[in-house]
């Protein structure tokens, strides 16, 4: 039996003049989380919509559990769950009624739907609110209800399109826990996200997508390795000092730094190196010799933010950055 739950080959999809997806290939191993990482408009959602039979591909093919998403669309629909960025629930229905709606339309036997609805409400901490209309729910509760609706028919393959966008850090961690549990039980999850931290935390493998093509693929560790072993962040009083420091570092023969390894970000410089602690000593000596005094210093593993910048030459997304900052602030 094929070990891949999802296979995408040469997928193309255009909307008028907009080429949303321009030749994407993916292979997702069973019972793992696969991350699709990229900014808004990269083609992540379009890929998910093709895989969930909502859109037909222009070219190429896609299959879920060996079933073609065009030719065997009905069989695919019986085996997948989709939870999206916008909680796709009916505001006027109660939580329980929303799950019954999803179960009935998934063609489950009615008694089974009722039982599953009860179990899921319990499991997602919605039992107390089960018989209240969903328009009284908080954002986090709506998202949990949406995910529960996608799980009513116990799908072996789950598509999560930016499931944590707009969630507070606590709700996000809760959702990560649920995903861990689902995967441990054998669910295959395809997850799209703008949050690099999320992909790093959940995905066994991931594809970085930009402008409709996969620009990098591998495990989070492999992608980080592309950055060199470590990153040194040095903060200065202002942007001007940081710029001067970057010039000094670039021209210092003892550091042997390549241009692409150095980046100035506000009043910070980032230096990607192979041997962090050792280079840090040399770096501080060099800065000191040039009368440049750092205000902060950190030696760390490269983040996927760094990877994305290195691969695309631009940041993942402004919105994501703000959210990350907000999260760091809250944490």
């Amino acid at each position: 039996m094929n070990d891949n739950a999802i296979v995408v080959q040469g997928l193309h999809k255009s909307f008028g003049d907009v080429h949303a997806v321009k030749g994407i290939d993916l292979e997702v191993e069973r019972a793992t989380v696969y991350g699709l990482l990229g900014p808004n408009g990269a083609g992540k959602t379009t890929t998910v919509r093709v895989l969930t039979t909502i859109l037909h591909p222009d070219q190429g093919s896609a299959s879920v559990l060996g079933l073609d998403v065009v030719d065997d669309a009905q069989a695919v629909r019986e085996r997948i769950g989709l939870a999206g960025q916008y909680a796709a629930i009916d505001e006027h229905l109660t939580g329980r009624e929303n799950l019954r709606l999803a179960g009935n339309l998934s063609h489950l036997p009615k008694a089974l739907t009722r039982q599953r609805a009860g179990d899921l409400l319990e499991r997602f901490g919605l039992a107390d609110a089960a018989d209240r209309p969903a328009n009284t729910y908080s954002g986090g509760m709506r998202r949990r209800l949406d995910l529960a609706a996608a799980l009513v028919h116990r799908p072996p393959v789950l598509f999560l399109d930016e499931p944590t966008t707009g969630l507070d850090p606590a709700s996000r961690k809760d959702l990560w826990g649920v995903i861990d549990e689902l995967v441990a039980d054998g669910t295959t999850v395809l997850l799209t996200t703008q949050y690099l931290e999320e992909a790093d935390r959940l995905a066994k493998r991931l594809a970085v997508i930009d402008l409709g093509v996969v620009i990098a693929e591998g495990t989070p560790q492999e992608l980080k390795a592309r950055m060199g072993g470590t990153v040194i962040d040095v903060g200065f009083a202002d942007h001007e000092t940081a710029t001067n420091a970057a010039i000094v570092v670039r021209s210092a023969p003892e550091l042997d730094a390549q241009d692409e390894d150095i980046r100035v970000d506000g009043s910070m410089i980032e230096l990607a190196v192979d041997d962090g602690p050792k280079t840090a000593i040399v770096l501080l000596r060099t800065l000191d010799a040039n009368s440049l005094t750092p205000t902060t210093l950190a030696v760390r593993e490269p983040s996927l933010d760094d990877v994305f910048l290195t691969l695309t030459g631009h940041k993942a997304e402004d919105g994501a950055d703000h959210a990350n900052l907000a999260e760091r602030g809250a944490a």
Partner: peptide, 16 residues
């Protein structure tokens, strides 16, 4: 709860 989340990995979907 683990039981209530578990997917149907082998076998047919529970659809009628």
């Amino acid at each position: 709860t683990a039981a209530s989340l578990a997917p149907i990995v082998d076998g047919s979907p529970p659809t009628a």
